[in-house]
Each structure stands twice: as C-alpha cells, then as structure tokens.
C-alpha cells in the first residue's frame, strides 16, 4: 500500500496529461498537460525516494522542476510568437513548417 498508492496516483495523473496532449487543441492547455506529466513523474520519484530511504530521488525531482521551468519559459515564448504571427493558439493551425 505504501508506495503503490502513490504510484497509481502518479499513473492516473500521467494518463490525464497524455490524453490532454492527444485530445486538446489549445496549445496552452496541451502544455499544461505536459506539466502534469512531469509532476506525475515527480510524485513517483518522491515515492521511490521514500521507499529506498535516500534523497537521490528528491534531487531528481528537483532537477525535473528546474528543467520544467526552463521548458515552460521557452515553450510559452514559442506560443506567444506563434500567436503573434498566426493569431491563433490552436495546434491544428500551426502548419508553418509544412509549407
């Protein structure tokens, strides 16, 4: 019960994030789905860190958070610049690289 409950919760959150990425078309919401997936991974990291009794897993979660912050900065900048040129945030309309 100890670790598996947290892992199941992390699985559910990861699944919700994945389905969000696959189904939704507002790119900001898609991006939030990615964030949720990272958080699910963090939860699993912390659960395992507690299981093994060391703080390495916590450190991994910490680095995940740092990378997530950097990723959000760049991703949102891309979304803003796309919105500036295309006036839309829908991922269906972003086909600039195709033409």
């Amino acid at each position: 019960m100890t670790v598996s409950a947290y892992l199941i919760l992390a699985s559910v959150l990861f699944t919700i994030g994945t389905v969000t990425v696959m189904v939704r078309r507002n790119s900001i919401i898609v991006f939030m789905g990615v964030e949720l997936m990272l958080n699910a991974a963090n939860l699993a990291f912390l659960a395992f860190a507690r299981m093994w009794g060391n703080v390495d897993g916590q450190l991994a979660a910490f680095f995940v958070m740092v990378v997530a912050a950097a990723e959000v900065v760049v991703g949102l900048a891309i979304i803003v610049s796309l919105f500036r040129t295309r006036r839309t945030v829908s991922v269906d309309d972003e086909n600039l690289l195709r033409h």
Partner: peptide
C-alpha cells in the same frame, strides 16, 4: 503529498 512523503523542501519548491 510531497510534504507527506518526507520531502518538505520539495513541497515548498513545488
């Protein structure tokens, strides 16, 4: 949950 999992530091960072 992070705090409950024994990492209050990461809870605050979260």
């Amino acid at each position: 949950l992070y705090v409950g999992l024994g990492s209050p530091f990461l809870g605050i960072v979260q």
